[in-house]
Design a protein around this nucleic acid. Structure first.
Length: 426
RNA sequence: GUGACCGUAGCUCAAUGGUAGAGCUCCAGAUUGUGGUUCUGGCUGUUGCGGGUUCGAGUCCCGUCGGUCACCCCA
């Protein structure tokens, strides 16, 4: 077969997949709005420079980039934050602070795909811009937790690991390290899960920091209170909101990106089988950097990808059931029109139109079909009611699919009968 | 980018180097106008693609494309 295939790492969304995607997007929007965030979006394609400026030329290897017909170096967005910084810097004066913005961009990366990581994915982003207060950090983490809760996950399914980079910075500065060494040190800490304790200890030796002290940081047994009073406050406020079971202080979490300046957090499945569900943190200097100093605003935000999230939904029965139930209720047909005699097709279509005008979800056979086949179709489409047009004319049969009850009524009373079935309270 | 494993019908998978199969799905029927069950019948493959070894290749070898997983990297 020489059929053209989709590009590697790109997905087709067949109706079922699309329904699942819409379900996820719907939850994201619903919860974000509940928190007072407003939706925005930017271009899918940006100048490559927007990304190299922040991360250096090495990032190009990971970018889906090319030269356009106007000889411009461009890249499909790998993330939204640089675009956000650009937009916020350009429209700084137009909005009252703080900004609470969310977006659901499709992002791209040119990398070999693997589980939970494709070349394209949708990523919910929520950022609070122009607010340095610790309550913004708390709000951000709370939103992350509530998003997960909205999908049906409990504290036994997911956990949000939280840290304050400042704690490490303070600890390491006391240990005599300079800024450059601190960045390198944290990079090693970031890899601890993948590399293991022994290797990590070996890699940290050159820094001359006592392993005993590092371990005390990592296992939470000492220091944290002294080095990060902020973190304690954040945890306490999350506790007050009833989220204590969802969060865990974890000093091994520093996140790979260099631009985080304070609180960082990542959400994981409790089983620890999957990649991170979400991740974010405070980046108070990034907008300043990306705008060449034109605008300076503190910020905190996080992102949640659709791929890993979808995998976890499939693994947690409660979440999966909730999704399937929601999708089914949205897709099911209200009414299927059965055309038993082709002479009645025109009369039936008059009803189809008027029922659709009345906001019912209605379908009917586009070509002649046996009555049995038509009822089977009605069943498969999840119709609650079938209306049969045939020899009974000028009357029609209304059939309640689940009970099998039928009644013979004149067409003028269809609307009344249906309102009794679909909205019994009125 | 590196490595390992995999690639058979629309889907899930069989086939000691010897004529390519099953289940599900789909389509059509079961005396002519009533349904997720049951029964019957039917469709689909240059075994991802291209070479090679062999009397003979789905099976063995090489290449290529695609997939999975790990490494690298992490938005």
């Amino acid at each position: 077969m020489t059929q053209i295939q989709s590009l590697p790492g790109f997905r087709d969304f067949l109706p079922d997949d699309c329904a699942r995607r819409n379900y996820v997007f719907g939850k994201w929007r619903e919860v974000a709005r509940r928190y007072g965030f407003v939706e925005w979006d930017g271009p899918v394609l940006e100048p490559t420079e927007l990304y190299t400026k922040k991360s250096g030329p090495e990032i190009v290897a990971q970018l889906f980039n090319f030269t356009d017909k106007g000889e411009r170096e461009v890249a499909l967005r790998p993330e939204l934050t640089p675009t956000l910084a650009r937009v916020v810097a350009a429209h700084d004066r137009e909005f009252k602070k703080p900004l609470k913005w969310f977006s659901i961009p499709q992002c791209f990366r040119y990398e070999k795909q693997q589980r939970g990581r494709l070349r394209e994915h949708f990523q919910f982003n929520a950022d609070i811009i122009g607010e340095a207060s610790l309550d913004a950090d708390v709000e951000s983490i709370a939103l992350c937790i509530d998003l997960l809760r909205a999908f049906g996950f409990g504290s036994s399914d997911v956990v949000v690991r939280i840290n304050d980079r400042a704690a490490w910075v303070k600890f390491l500065t006391n240990g005599g390290l300079d800024n450059e060494q601190i960045v390198e040190f944290l990079h090693v800490i970031d890899k601890i899960d993948r590399r293991g304790i022994v290797e990590t200890r070996k890699a940290l030796e050159p820094f001359g920091v006592e392993w005993y002290d590092v371990q005390a940081m990592l296992d939470n047994s000492a220091y944290p209170e002294d080095f990060s009073p902020k973190l304690n406050t954040v945890l306490q406020r999350l506790d007050e909101r009833g989220f204590a079971d969802f969060v865990k202080r974890d000093f091994s979490l520093v996140r790979g990106l260099a631009y985080y300046t304070g609180v960082v957090f990542e959400a994981f499945d409790r089983g620890g089988k999957l990649r991170a569900l979400a991740g974010g943190g405070r980046y108070d200097n990034l907008i300043h950097q990306l705008s060449d100093g034109a605008v300076s605003l503190p910020a905190i935000g996080f992102a949640m990808g659709d791929v890993v999230l979808g995998e976890l939904i499939n693994e947690i029965p409660a979440a999966k059931t909730q999704m399937e139930t929601t999708i089914a209720s949205k897709q099911d047909l209200d009414i299927y029109i059965v055309i038993a005699k082709e002479e009645r097709r025109a009369d039936a279509l008059v009803q189809v139109q008027s029922l659709r005008d009345a906001d019912y979800r209605v379908d009917y056979p586009l070509s002649p079909a046996k009555v049995g086949k038509q009822f089977q179709t009605a069943e498969q489409l999840g119709a609650r009611v079938a209306i049969l047009f045939g020899d009974e004319w000028p009357e029609v049969k209304i059939k309640h699919m689940s009970s099998g009850e039928q009644m013979l009524v004149p067409p003028e009373t269809i609307a009344l009968r249906l309102s009794e079935i679909f909205d019994p309270s009125s």
